[in-house]
Design a protein around this nucleic acid. Sequence first.
DNA 1: GCAAATTTGTTCGTATGTATT
DNA 2: CAATACATACGAACAAATTTG
Lengths: 273, 273
Amino acid sequence: MTDPLYRQIAQDLRGQIQTGQLPPGAQLRTELELREHYKASRNTIRDAIKWLVSSGLVETRPGQGTFVVEKIDPFVTTLSEDPETGLGGGEGEAAFAEVRERGRNPTRIGPRVELRQAVGNVATRLRIEEGTQVVSRHWERFIDGIPWSLQTAFYPMDLVTRGAHQLLMAEDVPDGSVAYLKQTLSLVQVGYRDRILVRAPNEEESRFFRVADDGRIPMISIMRTSYQATDEGPVPFRVTYTNLPADRNQLVVNFGEVPPARAAAASLDPPRS
Amino acid sequence: MTDPLYRQIAQDLRGQIQTGQLPPGAQLRTELELREHYKASRNTIRDAIKWLVSSGLVETRPGQGTFVVEKIDPFVTTLSEDPETGLGGGEGEAAFAEVRERGRNPTRIGPRVELRQAVGNVATRLRIEEGTQVVSRHWERFIDGIPWSLQTAFYPMDLVTRGAHQLLMAEDVPDGSVAYLKQTLSLVQVGYRDRILVRAPNEEESRFFRVADDGRIPMISIMRTSYQATDEGPVPFRVTYTNLPADRNQLVVNFGEVPPARAAAASLDPPRS
DNA sequence: GCAAATTTGTTCGTATGTATT
DNA sequence: CAATACATACGAACAAATTTG
């Protein structure tokens, strides 16, 4: 019936955070002080704090203390295509422009170009045999110096042998790869499908984004399959993975006619039900 | 340099899970057995298991043991509009149809209809004053008996006074509210914007979806603003919140021409970088 | 620059409670 | 009812990170 002690303590502290009595950035009393205050053992206090950490309300810093988390101003990525350029939202060039438009400073590292064998979803989505050669182009992106996204695009080797040699160069493709493939191979992108899921970060991601490696902060993973026009209808020519930590990213998708986007990210707004 | 003991143990167990040595559903050895095996104290074993729980790899059941989690076959919601019906993906009627199409059994409870004052994002997005009356229609949805989504739609009271009285009825609007508003008020939906973010569940959500209340399993929260045609361009007439637990849901968005969707949900596929 | 003080992190031991079989 | 397994709670000691004097 009654909650365990550590939960009662956690809920009391949570109340203080939610009422603003402990504002973002504020330091909680130390474990020893809380131990006296709640007349519990230090381990029980620590269990309470662990629950708050897991809920994303506080963070602990060894040697310093426990602090109420300060929300990161989230960056908003638009997935829908730009009606003017036809560029897919969230892709290299478009993503870059969108960030700068909002008065923030995007930087990037890459691309790292690799030749690989297609496996799993890459083979499935590109409709090629497992083991077929593909080119992968990998980018690391930052906003205002904060790690923002990891993105990898996979192209069938076929495109290169047919003349798109720029795909092998470890450098930016001017005006973007969609425009390049159109010029070089008359390949016209007619659409794309995004598949969005949420999962725990892997080791590389928790290192790059500097988030805990226990899955506290989830990743938003977007798998995009891009299609070109053919006589037999749309056929895939590229698969792109974009991985974003959920604590600093939101997505926007537009359908039909909508007014211009407002710059502000959505507040979390008491989720209503 | 060296990881703490509980991390080493956790990583060893993680290895056994990832290699399939401990397949999904398998039971781990008990804490006491692991204590002997690793020559550590029971508390240290428990710390290791807690890390695995937090990473979403195992779950503990009091009185039973610790088990490797079995992935739920995720349900895929398409957000893009149906080109035939013009219905927005993921909305009441469309969502229902999509589920049934995939051979799964959707049920629902609702709507619960309430009159409220618009606050926060609801007021902002509908472009009305805070405090203005709005109608909220709330649904609980299930797939194959499993809690799937909580959805709440907000309409300005204005629509009701102009004649859309069905919005106040705590019953399904036949053919959907978009069709109803078109018939009754000649209100034509011309587009919508989805804003997607990921956050920890609140208390009501963790209860309804039967997930841990410490935020281990994140929620995918979609805020949709729907627009009607006017002489001055698109104007919002509805705000819909859809909240989905991330462990059993994926999203799909289509742009331009894409082939028909395949039924299968995306596997998690070693996230590539 | 170093040493001390402060604060959280790790690890052990022990006892008792609660859920399930 | 008994046995088993995880959950809660206390106490204690030392380690590691950080700040302060």
